Amino acid sequence: MDTLQVILLALIQGFTEFLPISSSAHLILPAQLFGWEDQGLSFDVAVHIGSLLAVIIYFRKEIVAMFKAWIASIFKGQHSDDSKLAWWIILATIPAVVIGFMAKDWVESFLRGPGVIAITTVVFGLLLWLGDRMAKCELTEYQTGWKKALLIGFAQALALIPGTSRSGVTMTAALMLGLNKEAAARFSFLMSIPVILGAALLMGKDIVTEGHVIDWQAMGLGVLLSFISAYVCIHFFLKIISRMGMTPFVIYRLALGLFLCGFIFL
């Protein structure tokens, strides 16, 4: 990878990981459109680590509070809003872990092409629009409940398919289930922590066992740029989402999907 490719892909990962427009699709597309070689597993790990650090640092106070409350709920039987939220996030992670473990190889073999990305970009963009229109915006993340958390978790499992968008499909489900826009985003971002961490650990294991060549300079730059762009993205997205809604992202997804369809079939 040359430096320009590293910079572009790291920024793309950081900006798109937490927006409802699919980071996996945007990392696959440059290689498809510009004829670049695959960026490699080690670089994927690097940019995911950068995004993970961004969400952990941004929500550090909430994470510490949830962790302390979760420990208290286990050992002292003390239940609070923070402990319930921690349990719901754990519960919401289970479907993605189970389904991801079973379907990962099949998805990577058959569902990583631009045609699939074009279709999922449009379909899940329309679902995002529907979720935004249906949103009752009544509940905060602390009022989610275990049933809604589990349903959002099953929605998250769909993000194994490139073009779906993990944040997009979880926000869509959360909005349809009554969460307000900021709560849907916050719950989605907190859900991302165990999922991104698990994905990075699995990819790291593959790097070690398969003996991948590591470009440490590219990895370091990838971590730094994905961290900065992801942190900026989270901050401003939460500031504007209640006023702006999902319409701009729906329009972007539809335009991107139509462009891809034209690129593929014309």
Results as ranks from 00 to 15, higher is better:
V98S: 07
H212W: 11
R112F: 05
F237P: 01
I196K: 08
I161R: 06
L266I: 09
L111Q: 02
I56D: 05
F263M: 09
L9P: 02
G35M: 09
Y231D: 06
I49Y: 10
R133W: 14
V55H: 07
L266A: 12
L126T: 01
T93I: 05
I89E: 10
K205T: 00
I90A: 14
P114D: 14
L53S: 04
K136D: 13
I161Y: 07
C261I: 14
L179I: 01
V47C: 02
F263Q: 10
A157C: 07
I228W: 11
V107G: 12
I196L: 14
L85R: 13
G145H: 03
T209Y: 07
V45G: 01
P248G: 11
Q78D: 15
M176Y: 02
R60W: 15
S73C: 03
A185M: 02
L238H: 05
A159C: 06
G222P: 05
Q217W: 08
L85E: 13
K104C: 00
A54M: 12
S165M: 09
N180R: 12
Q13F: 04
T209H: 05
V107L: 15
W129F: 14
V223W: 13
V213F: 08
L260F: 08
L85F: 13
L221Q: 11
A31W: 06
L111E: 03
I119D: 05
L258H: 04
G163Y: 07
H26A: 09
G14V: 01
A174T: 00
G77Y: 14
L4K: 13
P20V: 00
E17L: 07
